[in-house]
Amino acid sequence: MNRTAAPLEKSTASPTPQSPNFIQILFNGFVDLIDRLMAPLQNLLGVQRMAYIFVLPNLLIFGIFIILPMILNLSYAFTGSTQLFPADRPFIGADNFARLFECSNFLDPNTCREDVFWRAVFNSTIFVIVQVSFMVVMALTTALALNRKIMLRAFFRSVFFYPVLLSPVVVALIWKWILQQDGLLNAVIVSLGGTRVPFLLNAEWARVWVILISVWAQMGFFTLILLAGLQAIPSELYEAASMDGASAWASFRNITLPLLMPTMTVVLVLALIRAVQVFDQVVPFTNGGPGTATTYMVQYIYNTGFTNQTREYGIAAAASVLMALILFTLTFAQLRLTRAGQNES
């Protein structure tokens, strides 16, 4: 290994007839300072290893804000008490996990010791299945429509993407204002002679609205991805199919769907991951209610660790480890499917 690489080339201002101005002097001084710091370092480490110095700031940030919290979370999952600092928390082995899994019938949350955790798991499962299916279908339909030569196409593309730009809290508060008991929608219903509908006070209604609103808020993002996928399909294929007398449905089934499948896979997995993580929109919208009807896994973790008067950080950490496993599996599936798609193509 050559450790005596040539020193960095000094950056000096090229001689000009005019005297250098203030900014130039400052810049030159700064470059010279960096040079004086880096040159000995490069001599010490060699050119090849200097790369580590340049990625060090990013590695530090990643380590402090990602890796360290993950390790801390894992350690919390195996400790008890309501104390915040790890040093004050006694090691209790897998008791937190055992408590989460203490169930006589996993299909009935009422038989589980941590019933609210299992309610959250069931709520999340139903939410993920329904919301993702509905969103992928809606996003695909919208993308197909926006891919056609329709009037005001650019305008509609903006309109469908616009909710994505809104903060989830803003989305939640706007819809809450519309749907609450004395909200806009009920005012319209009453003015038409109807009676108020408990949109946010009835468990079924609340679940439906949480799904609809999250689809409304996120669909534009996935529509955009699918639209890009649709535009990548060569138009010659459709022309050839048309010349062969293929119907629109046949073209869709045999050309569009197969060629869009890699993009669909990405959309599906991204939507799944986002659905499992649902939290920011629901808390200001229903705060998990009525009862626990719209309490999902992240909110359960948040409530258990931070809003309950008894702050059970250990249980919250154990639940988040389980959730991390689910997300890891989904991410792994995405990578495998994407890679498989790339190999096929």
Binding site: Q180, Q181, P198, L200, L201, V283, T286, N287, G288, G289, P290, G291, T295, N303, T307
Partner: peptide, 12 residues
């Protein structure tokens, strides 16, 4: 009683 108070406020 107004349902909003006990049922409509989630967990707070």
């Amino acid at each position: 009683t107004p349902v909003e108070v006990w049922v409509g406020s989630g967990g707070t």
